[in-house]
Each structure stands twice: as structure tokens, then as C-alpha cells.
């Protein structure tokens, strides 16, 4: 037997991983991405004549518990019907036991790449506001994402913002493995399902002490292995980190204060909800006082001047004109 060439080896690795979905509804095309637990493929749904994304686990579930996690991730996606969350279409199991689900194919780029072409700060902040809306929606549904980072936020060609990869999401009020049942936290309207795991940085366990999320982006309480006790403020932290990345190293003071509050180490020092954070961003954009920053009299004056610059300029122009006319008339 000849030595397997690098090319043949790569081909064998590809074809032995490539899924063969049951029936002839889906035709699998190229690989779109890979995560810690599975691979996402582009596929054609022949029945509905549309392209979809199919996520397939790398291995069959090791246990019913693990199988349950993927199913719960699918259920979480299914229940979160929102324009900012990718809808799921179908779920199943391959002949070799690997689980898969089909979802909407998102054509876009990750947030960090998308903002490369968006230099204006207000435009970046408006994208961020859409992200906050989606996260707040999930929180109201009782779901915490727990892995918010630019790579998990996609921006579509029309500026639509989608939150991806709910693999380590937690459903409030639903006990995870090793966690005693707990009442829903504030802001959790509903609770069913549980947590599933996926994503490059996520582990496949949610027992107490296990770190879920991505270093550098996850809240300190999550990094400390208390993932099962987190509340929506863990996502506020993630939003704060994303905001930090969006506004650059020298943002205006009031914006810097918003960032600092969102990514505060202690949950109680952060905004309580994503909508509170969004409200402060909104205030910043409209030039009104933000809750995260106590401004001095001069700063307040400066902000008011900035906010009403056009009116003040018009008034000044009017006063100058009147003065000139007055002086002219005196001659």
C-alpha cells in the first residue's frame, strides 16, 4: 500500500466526517465552520428549495445526558423566536448515532469583522443596541447565553444582528447537572429545557466547578466555575466586553463609564439587565445624561452645548445678525 499522501489523508478525514443525512431531503455541501462539539455544513433543503445550515456533532452522544443537552440546545433555539436569533428547522440522528439539527443559514460576518467597515461610533453603537435587544429578549424568556463574544455575533448584509451558538446557554429555573433546583431569577419569565454545550471554548459538562464560556469574555463568576449560579448579569458582562471592543481604547468619558459599569467584576456593580445597558447607550447617543456617569457642572454644560449645538449656533448667528443690523442702523 502506498503511503497516504497529505491530500488523500485530508480527503479521508473529510469524507469520514461528512454526514449522510437520512432520506434525501438535505444535500450537504461545504463545511462552514467547526466548534468544540460539532461542525456546521451548508446544505440544500430540497423540499423547501432553500439553503440551510446543518450542525452535526463530531461523535455520537456518550450518554443520554449528553444527547439531552444537544436536544435542549435545539429546544432553546426553537423557543427563542426573534429576528436576532437563528431559527431551527429540523433535528435528527445519523445512522452512526451522531445528532444533527438544521437551522437558518446566516449569510454574514462576525461582529468584529463587520465593524471593520463601520468606523463611525454612533453606527457601531446602533449595532450594539440591536444586540442588546436580542439578549434582553432571551433573558425575558429565561435564557442566559453565557458565551457572548464578537465571534458569536453575526452581522448580516442588511445590518441585521444575530446572536449565534447557544450551546452553553442556561435556562433559568431549570437545574443543570449537579445543581439543585432553584427558583427563577429576576427577569426570568419562563423556564423549561436546560443547557446544551457547544462552541470552541465550551466544555461539555455543566457540573458545579466547571468553567463554561470563553476566557476573556466570560464574567468572573463564570470563570470561577460558578456557571450554574449565574444570572442575566453574566451576559451584561459579555455585552460590556463586546462594547469595550467596539468603542476602542479612548472612548468619551461617559461612554467609558458605561463600559466600566457593564464589565464590572462584581455582578451587583453592573447593569441589572441588558435593557438598562441599552438605555444608557441610547441616552449617550441622544446626548442626555447617562446613569453610569456623574458629571460636573462644566461637563454638563459642555454636553448640553454639544447636544444643542445646531440650535445654539443658529441662536448665535441670529444674535450676531441682529447686532450687525443694530450697528448698521445706528450709522
Amino acid at each position: 500500500m502506498n503511503r497516504l499522501s497529505d491530500e488523500a489523508l485530508a480527503h479521508l478525514r473529510d469524507v469520514t466526517e461528512r454526514p449522510e443525512l437520512p432520506g434525501d431531503r438535505y444535500e450537504i455541501h461545504e463545511r462552514l465552520g467547526r466548534g468544540g462539539m460539532g461542525t456546521v455544513w451548508r446544505a440544500t433543503d430540497r423540499e423547501l428549495a432553500r439553503d440551510v445550515a446543518v450542525k452535526v456533532m463530531t461523535l455520537p452522544a456518550a450518554s443520554d445526558r449528553e444527547r439531552g443537552r444537544l436536544q435542549r440546545e435545539a429546544h432553546i433555539l426553537a423557543r427563542l423566536e426573534h429576528p436576532g436569533i437563528v431559527p431551527i428547522h429540523d433535528i435528527g440522528q445519523l445512522a452512526d448515532g451522531r445528532l444533527w439539527y438544521a437551522m437558518k443559514l446566516v449569510r454574514g460576518v462576525a461582529l468584529d469583522r463587520a465593524v471593520e467597515s463601520v468606523s463611525a461610533l454612533p453606527a457601531r453603537l446602533r449595532l450594539f443596541l440591536r444586540l442588546c435587544e436580542t439578549v434582553e429578549f432571551a433573558h425575558v424568556q429565561g435564557v442566559i447565553h453565557r458565551d457572548l463574544k464578537p465571534a458569536n455575533v453575526m452581522v448580516g448584509p442588511f445590518g441585521e444582528v444575530l446572536v449565534m451558538d447557544w450551546g452553553v446557554a442556561k435556562v433559568l429555573g431549570e437545574p443543570e447537572e449537579g445543581e439543585p433546583a432553584a427558583p427563577p431569577s429576576a427577569g426570568a419569565a419562563d423556564a423549561s429545557g436546560g443547557a446544551a454545550t457547544d462552541g470552541g471554548a465550551a466544555t461539555d459538562s455543566t457540573s458545579p466547578g466547571t468553567v463554561l464560556g470563553t476566557p476573556g469574555w466570560m464574567a468572573p463568576e463564570q470563570a470561577a466555575g460558578r456557571a450554574h449560579t449565574v444570572d442575566p448579569r453574566a451576559d451584561v458582562f459579555g455585552l460590556g466586553r463586546i462594547l469595550h471592543a467596539l468603542v476602542g481604547s479612548e472612548p468619551p468619558r461617559r461612554l467609558a463609564a458605561i463600559v466600566a459599569r457593564a464589565e464590572a467584576s462584581r455582578p451587583e456593580d453592573r447593569y441589572g439587565t441588558a435593557s438598562e445597558l441599552a438605555a444608557d447607550i441610547d441616552r449617550f447617543l441622544s446626548g442626555t445624561a447617562v446613569s453610569a456617569y456623574r458629571e460636573g457642572a462644566l461637563e454638563k454644560l459642555g454636553r448640553l452645548v454639544e447636544r444643542h449645538r445646531v440650535a445654539i449656533l443658529l441662536l448665535l448667528a441670529y444674535v450676531v445678525m441682529r447686532s450687525l443690523l443694530f450697528l448698521w442702523g445706528d450709522r
Binding site: E17, R34, G36, G38, T58, L59
Partner: peptide, 11 residues
């Protein structure tokens, strides 16, 4: 499982 993910799950 970690090795399998590297074997099939990465380039």
C-alpha cells in the same frame, strides 16, 4: 472524545 474532535473536527 477530545482526540476525535481534533481528528474530525479541525483542519
Amino acid at each position: 472524545r477530545a482526540e476525535a474532535r481534533e481528528l474530525f473536527g479541525t483542519d
